[in-house]
């Protein structure tokens, strides 16, 4: 296996200060993500996963520690890191096409090339025919497909996904997990995927990093070497599920 390091977090900590009190949200995260690896950050609660991802994205700065992407220190956002967000992050005033090509338009890619590239990723996420549809007319799953296409369209090295399926119903969620695996299989990227759903983690991950709650720190790592596509009811799947859930419960 190719072991090029793409992301490296070097004892990253984040403290939010409110008036006089400091609030530990991320604590001493040491993390290495390899090229084309699908890494899942698995953690419960409302305590620092988004913050950690935003630090890697460069949207937020760590209080201490450093993040490197491709050996370069992260000091702000950059087009080599695409982000798929947790909540409704599509621009409601733009169509599917407008949303997907937003990033490369900002990067100054000409209209013809832009359309071509956006169309490729719209097709990749299975939204052909919905190019001119506004987000309000799309279902939750379709919206997240647009979000994925939008992040892919700038052709980043790293994809950061923050609970992208968190707001979907269970049925759509399974479907989107399968879709994402197929998309990722066709367009390999280094992925950091945040979730609080163990099935989702086991279905998608090459490696699962289990996080402690409040503040977020690393509890344990599991390398998941089951062949893909995985069965939610496979023997090993169920075994790992029990093991990791059991481990988690001890933290709560």
């Amino acid at each position: 296996m190719n072991k090029d390091v793409v992301i490296k977090c070097d004892s990253v900590s984040k403290i939010f200060y409110s008036s006089d009190k400091g609030f530990d949200v991320v604590k001493n995260i040491d993390l290495t993500v390899f090229k084309n690896e699908f890494l899942v950050l698995f953690g419960p609660g409302q305590c620092g996963k988004t913050t950690l991802l935003n630090i890697i994205a460069g949207l937020d700065m760590p209080t201490s520690g450093k993040v490197y992407v491709n050996n370069k220190e992260v000091i702000g956002p950059g087009p080599e890191r695409g982000v798929v967000y947790q909540s409704i992050s599509l621009f409601p005033w733009l169509t599917t096409m407008g949303n997907v090509e937003f990033g490369i338009k900002a990067a100054g890619v000409g209209k013809k090339e832009r359309r071509k590239r956006a169309q490729y990723y719209i097709d990749l996420v299975g939204l052909q025919g919905f190019e001119n549809t506004y987000p309000i007319k799309l279902s939750g799953g379709m919206k997240q497909r647009v979000g994925i296409a939008r992040a892919y369209c700038i052709e980043p090295v790293v994809m950061l996904m923050d609970e992208p399926f968190g707001a979907l119903d269970a049925q759509t969620r399974y479907l989107m997990q399968k879709e994402l695996e197929i998309i990722w299989g066709r367009e390999k990227r280094t992925v950091v995927f945040v979730t609080n759903n163990i099935e989702e983690a086991l279905f998608l991950a090459d490696r699962i990093v289990v996080l402690n709650n409040c503040p977020t720190s690393i509890r344990q790592e599991y390398v998941i070497d089951m062949p893909r596509p995985r069965e939610y009811t496979g023997e090993k799947f169920l075994y790992l599920r029990k093991e990791i859930t059991g481990n988690m419960d001890k933290t709560l």
Binding site: L59, P77, G78, P79, V83, I88, F91, G103, A106
Partner: peptide, 21 residues
């Protein structure tokens, strides 16, 4: 929305681009 501004920033939009777009 903050998340919209995040999207703009990750795509490297300038302050004025973020204002207008």
């Amino acid at each position: 929305l903050n998340v919209h501004l995040w999207v703009g920033r990750t795509f490297g939009a300038s302050n004025l681009e973020m204002l207008f777009r």
